[in-house]
Amino acid sequence: MSTLLDIQDLAINFKTRSGDVHAVDGVSFQLEAGKVLGIAGESGCGKTTTALSIPRLLPSNARLVRGHILFDGVDLMQFSEGEIEKIRWKQISMVFQGAMNALNPVKTIGAQIIEPIVWHEPAIARGDANQRVLELLERVGIPAARARSYPHEFSGGMRQRVMIAMALACRPKLIISDEPVTALDVMIQAQILNLLKDLQKQMNLAMIFISHDLSVIAESCDEIAIMYAGKLVERGSIRKVFSQPAHPYTQALIRSFPNIYGKQELIHGIPGYPPNLIHPPTGCRFHERCDRCIDICAQSEPVLREVGEGQIAACHRIGETLP
């Protein structure tokens, strides 16, 4: 297996009126071809910023402070705008929260799916491109005849299928799915997740899967990365992280999930709010909300350490016996 995506020490700031927001600070991870990585965390933890920074789609007030994003061994950050445009969709495509507004309301879905095909492959014959659109639609379970329908004529789940068909249009190597099943009801979520999983296996795609919903990630990913306040706090295989979470934040996240097999009790939330990222707290960014906080946590920042096979976490108290 070869490394397809290698993110090294990524740090991104947003310029705002009240100061620079340190949205992503020192995030590193690798993704192998054909693997699925889930990124989880609360709203505002930097997961979407991390994802959008890969095809360089961040808004204009975002600034790369440091770091590299190596895709197939080349640093995407060094590319000109014209060069990165050739990478987008052809190599790295995206699945947005399509149930909402990610499809243009005044164009037929067929026109929207064919658009990147004819743009990235100008030599393709019109008929072949049309043929591919119809195949893609069939593949995601939409009758080919509906290519001439408009987005508002589809249900939320169907629109998400359209979005997925569109993401596959140029046969990319990597698909970034940003909350692909959020805002869909649970039955449809399951269908879409199965579809994504099947397509990912069939086409041997690498995928980054962003969700605030741990159960969705547990179901569809090989590895998980947990982010908190712009930092990566834990990373490892799904099995390891869910069975032996090392970071107190991960533990709290998993605890805050209702267990349908266990006894019925009130869900454990995590008290407090994520910190202000204009002036992030010193030391560990989670220390103000952490139930295992000790003096050192507020003073020095913990580094990511190996805690098990292929599992790393950033906490001063790792290695101590769990209470």
């Binding site: 014209g82 969709w89 495509s93 995206m94 947005f96 507004n101 990610a102 164009k107 743009w119």
Partner: peptide, 23 residues
């Protein structure tokens, strides 16, 4: 959001502007 989709597709800004935004 569909403007971001247009950019993500690798279309240059003026195509996103005239093809997706202006209509």
């Amino acid at each position: 959001d569909y403007i971001l989709t247009g950019k993500a597709k690798g279309l240059p800004f003026r195509r996103v502007l005239w093809g997706h935004a202006v209509p």
